[in-house]
Each structure stands twice: as C-alpha cells, then as structure tokens.
C-alpha cells in the first residue's frame, strides 16, 4: 500500500511539474481541459499495459501483437455493426475474435518457441502482428470508418469540458481491472498459480502446477484485455488498422512504468504518460513531438529502476 501511494505521489508530482513548467500563465480551466483529455488517452495506454503485464507475468511472453489483436477485435466489431447486428452482440463478437487470436498464438505458436529467450519470443510476436495486419488490410480496403458506442453521446461536464461517458468508462475500467486482477491474483487458486509461474517456472512445474491450464487462461484473459483496449482505441482514437497495431509500443512504455510487474504502477504510469503528453501541447518546442512522452518517461523509469546498480551479473532472465 505504501508503495502504491509513493508511486501515486510521484506521478501526480510529475504531472503537476509539467503543468507548471509549460502551462504557467494558462487559465486553470484550460489546463483542466488538457488534463481530462490526457487521462482518457493515458488510461488507454494503461489498459494495453495491463494486458501485456498480466500475460508477461504468467507466460514470460511480451506480446508485441497485442495491438494487432485489439485492432482485429475492433474491426470485427465494426463489421458486425455494419451487418446490422445488435450493438452488444457485435462488441462481444469483436472481443471473441481477440480471445481467439490470443489463444491461437498462445496454444499453437508460442509453445514451439518456448526454448527461445524472452527477447526473441517478444520480437517474434511482431511476425504475428504483421500477419494479422496484412489479413485485416486485405479484407478491409482503405476507407474512412468510425466506431461508436452509445456512451459517446452521453456526457457530463467536468472542469468545463464536456466529457463523454466512454472516456469515463475507460478510466473506470482501467481502475476496476487493476483492482480486480490484483485481488484475484492474491486470493484465488489460479491467481496463486499465476504468481508461482511468474516467480519461477521450472519450480512451479516441479510442484505440480498445471502450467498449460494456467497459461491458457492467461492468454485468453490477455486476449480479452487487448480486445477491449482495441475497441476503446477504435472509439476514442481512430479506426485505422495500422495505427492501432503499432499503439502497442506506447503501451509497452506504460508496462515498463510498472516494471512489467506491478499493475497499480502500470495504471498510474499510463495515466501520467497520457496527461504529460497532453500537457506538452502548451510547449511550442515540444508540441510537435508530443508522442515522444511515453518513451522518455519509460526510459527514465528504467534508468531509475537500475540506479545504484553498477553491473549486472548473469541472472535468470
């Protein structure tokens, strides 16, 4: 708990620092607008990061195809809506595609490269990403599309900015997911098994943890998270396959903020990244390179994580 509060304080301080530095002299109302706007994008980064971390902890795979899986989900959902399906059915259909794609990779492809080291496994998943991107681009010719949810037209006023329920929904979903997943990791049997796998895979298999079942569950869950993130990206960002596919890179930045481990840190890191990226609009120097924020922050976090360590000695990674 102490640790969570410390991260929260750090994130708030960073955001406030950026707001004061670049936004000095801007009315509080304008600042508020940019902060609220940044929170929505930040929670998208966080959602993607949560999926990546859940999967990485349980299976040791950092999945670069997360964006592509989410993209396939939202394109499928869009297509189902175009075919006249009832909204919720279409969304569930889209999510099902996400779960199916993740399970296919997890059960069919990933086991065959289990002998590779983590970096190679991560890099190879890019192959899956571009294959999915190729199929989707082939099936859906380039034309303007829009994916909407009914919550887009409902709104509340916060800090003078009309905030749609969808934007609130992503922030809320990210928080609920972090709390829910953390609790279930700590209280359920599967959660215990996942944590065991995350700590030491070979020992876990020796003591009889059903690795296959736990991994399948993790892949399915991550597919669901990627799918949901994809739907939200499609709604809040834009419905373009290549854009959503490569959104996985800033999501990795959010995951790094949680050291690929701590879900609350991923959430807070993601939100801070979103807010800072949005606030950089105030700076004439940086506004054209705003999207660099996730990478700079992630690099700083990585450096801070390893401060004081002079050298590495052969470890278990």
């Amino acid at each position: 708990m102490w640790h969570v509060l410390r991260t929260a304080a750090l994130c708030v301080a960073a955001c406030a620092g950026v707001a004061l530095w670049f936004g000095a002299g801007k009315p509080a109302m304008v600042q508020g607008m940019f902060i609220v706007s940044g929170l929505a994008v930040g929670s998208l980064y966080a959602l993607g990061g949560i999926g990546l971390v859940v999967l990485y902890r349980a299976t040791g795979v950092l999945n670069l195809s997360a964006g592509a899986i989410g993209m396939a989900s939202v394109m499928a959902a869009w297509q189902l809506v175009q075919w006249g399906l009832f909204g919720p059915v279409a969304w569930v259909g889209g999510l099902a595609i996400g779960v199916a794609l993740a399970l296919f990779y997890g059960r069919v492809i990933a086991p065959q490269m289990a002998w590779r080291e983590p970096v190679v496994k991560a890099v190879a998943s890019l192959g899956y990403a571009i294959a999915i991107l190729g199929v989707v681009s082939f099936l859906f010719p380039d034309e303007p599309r829009k994916f909407s949810l009914p919550t887009d037209s409902m709104a509340v006023m916060i800090l003078g900015l009309r905030v749609t329920v969808t934007r609130l929904l992503v922030v809320l979903a990210a928080i609920v997911l972090v709390v829910g997943i953390t609790i279930s990791l700590n209280t359920t049997r599967v959660g215990l098994q996942m944590r065991a796998l995350a700590n030491n895979r070979s020992l876990s298999s020796l003591i009889g943890i059903p690795i296959l079942r736990v991994e399948t569950l993790a892949w399915g869950l991550s597919g669901l998270l990627f799918g949901f993130t994809g739907l939200m990206f499609g709604d809040l960002v834009r419905l373009e396959p290549s854009v959503i596919t490569f959104m996985v890179i800033p999501c990795i930045a959010a995951a790094i903020c949680g050291r690929l481990q701590s879900l609350p840190d991923v959430l807070m890191g993601g939100l801070a990244i979103g807010v800072i990226e949005s606030l950089l609009t105030f700076s004439d120097t940086f506004k054209q390179v705003r999207p660099i924020a996730p990478f700079v922050i992630a690099a700083l976090v990585l450096l801070a994580m390893n401060r004081g360590r002079r050298l590495t000695f052969a470890g278990d990674d």
Binding site: M33, F34, V41, F246, P250, G274, Q288, R290, P291
Partner: peptide, 13 residues
C-alpha cells in the same frame, strides 16, 4: 504528429 493517438489535444489547441 501522425503517431499521436491524442487528437483531442490538437483540437483543444
């Protein structure tokens, strides 16, 4: 920036 997911900030600007 075409890489930016956050079009809303551009609009606000």
């Amino acid at each position: 920036n075409p890489a930016s997911p956050d079009v809303n900030s551009g609009l606000l600007e």
